[in-house]
Simulated scan of single mutants.
Amino acid sequence: MIKTLTIEPLTREAFAPFGDVIESEGRDYFMINNGSTRRYHQLGEVQLDEQGRGIISIFRARTLDYPLAIKMLERHPFGSQSFIPLFGHDFLLVVAPVGDGGMNIDPASVRAFRASGRQGVNYHRGVWHHPILALRDDDEFLVVDRSGPGNNCDEFFFDESVQLSLELG
Rank of each mutant, 00 (worst) to 15 (best):
I132P: 04
A69T: 06
G26S: 00
N104C: 05
R111T: 04
Q51K: 05
D20G: 05
D20R: 04
L73M: 01
Q163V: 02
L93M: 02
D100N: 14
H129E: 13
P97A: 12
G19E: 01
I32P: 00
D137Q: 12
L93N: 07
V110H: 11
D20A: 07
L92F: 01
L64F: 05
L86S: 08
N104K: 12
E140N: 11
I55Q: 12
S147M: 09
E167C: 11
V98D: 08
E50Y: 12
I84Y: 06
F87N: 15
I58A: 07
A96M: 07
A134Y: 13
P97D: 08
S24V: 02
S57C: 04
N33L: 06
R111Y: 12
F158C: 05
G88D: 01
R39L: 03
D106I: 02
F83W: 10
A108W: 11
G148K: 03
G120H: 13
K3L: 03
K3P: 06
E13M: 06
R118I: 05
L86C: 00
V94D: 05
T63L: 13
H76Q: 12
G35R: 01
R75W: 08
D159Q: 13
G150L: 02
S80T: 08
S147V: 11
E160W: 10
F59A: 07
F141C: 00
G99F: 10
A96D: 07
F83S: 09
T11K: 04
R75N: 01
R12A: 15
D145I: 06
N34K: 11
F78Y: 15
G150N: 08
I55R: 12
G99K: 12
I132K: 05
G102R: 09
V127F: 10
T63F: 01
H124I: 09
D49A: 00
P67E: 10
F15P: 08
F113P: 00
E50G: 07
N34A: 10
A14F: 06
L142V: 03
I105R: 10
P107H: 14
F15T: 11
Q119A: 01
D159P: 00
S109R: 01
L92Q: 11
H129N: 13
L142M: 14
P9Y: 04
S109T: 11
E23T: 12
D138G: 09
M1H: 09
